[in-house]
Amino acid sequence: MPDARLKTIEGGRTSPEAAQAPLLMQARKLSFCPNGKPLVDTVDLDIREGRRLVVMGANGAGKSLLLRLLHGLLPPSGGEVVWQGKPLDRAAMREQAMVFQRPVMLRRSVIANLQFALAVRGIGGTERRRRVEEALEQARLGDLARHPARVLSGGEQQRLALARALACTPRLLFLDEPTASLDPASTLAIENLIATAHARGITIVMITHDKGQARRLGDDIAFLHGGRLVETGPAARVLETPNSGAARAWLEGRLYLDDLSSTPSPTP
């Protein structure tokens, strides 16, 4: 879908264009407070079709929790997740996929890991064979197809995890720091796979701490601080001229303690 790609390149810089893309998913006053402590605090967020949203923020800001709430892996304590105008349900989850920071590999061969993901979605026969072939080729794991997935290197495992997620042809792909523990070459391979997925029109929501990666892969940035969404906007703008104190401090590599009620603020 060349259209989507074109739009992306333009859309990376301009926010009006982002608003034009149709709404795919919405978080409305989304909260998650185990034991009464708000770890995700009344977050409102729009996710638009075909866009790449990068979620950033310090450790413990609630990024991973937010992704899990959006994907339906955790039940929200308050608010709701809306998928195409309707509450998130199992059918909606099947149109999404997620890749975790540490890839979860079944204790089986590479090819069996791919087959499993497709089998649980009821995809069999020649269609499954075709998609497995494609995924192996995409992840460049054809030679390792019959190897146990858990003897692969970290980079290979993450490629397989991503290919497995993409084989399910999701409309929305969540990525939780997919390159956090990878070397530069493996990181590049993963980024290329993400770019390919986006080129096919897949909407992407990803967490990263890497500013360069956010610039390369993000159309928009959502910045979390202490469970709250403190800033959203086009990636280039947020990275260059952040509005919020939290984002500014984080991007400059400072510890930002403002409005963390448990700690007294050291700066005026």
């Binding site: 994907h71 989850m93 996929a97 975790f100 204790r107 499993f116 649980v120 399910c168």
Partner: peptide, 25 residues
């Protein structure tokens, strides 16, 4: 504990889950 999030994400049903856990273990 290791598989639960991945299985939930893939939408693995109860029967498939039991079978997969038994097989992988």
């Amino acid at each position: 504990t290791e598989y639960s999030e991945q299985f939930a994400s893939l939408g693995v049903g109860p029967l498939d889950r039991i079978a997969a856990l038994l097989w992988d273990a």
